[in-house]
Simulated scan of single mutants.
Amino acid sequence: MQLGTRWTVGEQPPSRLTEDVVAAIAGVEAELAGIDTTGWRWTLTWLEGRPVAELDDGTVVRVDHTGAISVEEPAE
């Protein structure tokens, strides 16, 4: 696993992420409209060369070995 970077919700994700991953992250952020996300951040790591972005609430956007992007919501 490689450590990546962190950024605040609403800011531009790292440029090394593909357009599809950025769109998935934007979709997650759109679902958060109306929720106070002040101070929430994404953490980007790389697992076997593929990005894994985790939001402070536990939501995870990842790319699997086939290139498919998934969004995993936190368990309530």
Rank of each mutant, 00 (worst) to 15 (best):
L3W: 03
R6H: 04
I35C: 05
R50W: 03
L47R: 15
L3P: 01
I69R: 10
L44W: 14
D64L: 05
E48G: 07
S70I: 03
E54V: 10
R41A: 12
L17R: 05
A68T: 14
E11C: 01
I25A: 03
R6S: 11
V9C: 04
G27H: 01
G34N: 02
L47A: 14
W42Y: 07
I69Q: 08
E31A: 02
V71L: 12
E76S: 10
V28P: 03
M1L: 09
I25W: 01
V9P: 00
W46F: 14
W7M: 05
E72S: 01
W46Q: 13
A53L: 15
P51D: 14
E31D: 13
G10K: 09
D56A: 08
P13S: 04
A33K: 11
P74T: 07
V22A: 12
V9S: 00
G49T: 10
G27P: 12
Q12I: 14
A26C: 04
G39A: 11
I25Q: 01
T45I: 15
I35Q: 08
T45C: 06
D64I: 08
L55V: 11
L17S: 04
E29M: 01
P14V: 12
R62V: 03
V21N: 07
A26G: 01
W46C: 09
V60Y: 02
G58Y: 00
T18G: 10
A53C: 15
V21A: 08
G58S: 01
T18A: 02
G10C: 05
E73G: 08
M1F: 02
L44Q: 13
A30S: 07
D36A: 11
E48P: 00
L32H: 01
G39V: 12
I25H: 02
S15E: 15
V21I: 15
D64F: 02
A33N: 07
V22C: 05
D36E: 14
T5P: 00
S15A: 14
I25Y: 07
A26T: 09
D64Y: 05
I69W: 03
M1H: 03
E31Y: 00
A68R: 09
E29L: 07
V71S: 08
E72I: 04
V63K: 03
W46E: 15
D64E: 08
M1P: 10
W46D: 12
D20V: 09
E54Q: 12
T37E: 02
P14A: 11
E29Y: 04
A53S: 14
G67D: 00
L3I: 08
E19P: 09
E76M: 06
W42K: 09
R41S: 11
Q2G: 09
S70Q: 12
R6Q: 13
S15I: 04
T37Q: 03
V60H: 00
P51L: 02
D64A: 01
A53M: 15
V60L: 00
G58N: 04
G10R: 09
E11M: 09
A75K: 12
S15F: 06
A30D: 08
E76Q: 07
A23Y: 07
A24Q: 02
P51Q: 13
A68S: 14
P13Y: 04
G49P: 05
A75C: 04
S15T: 14
V28F: 06
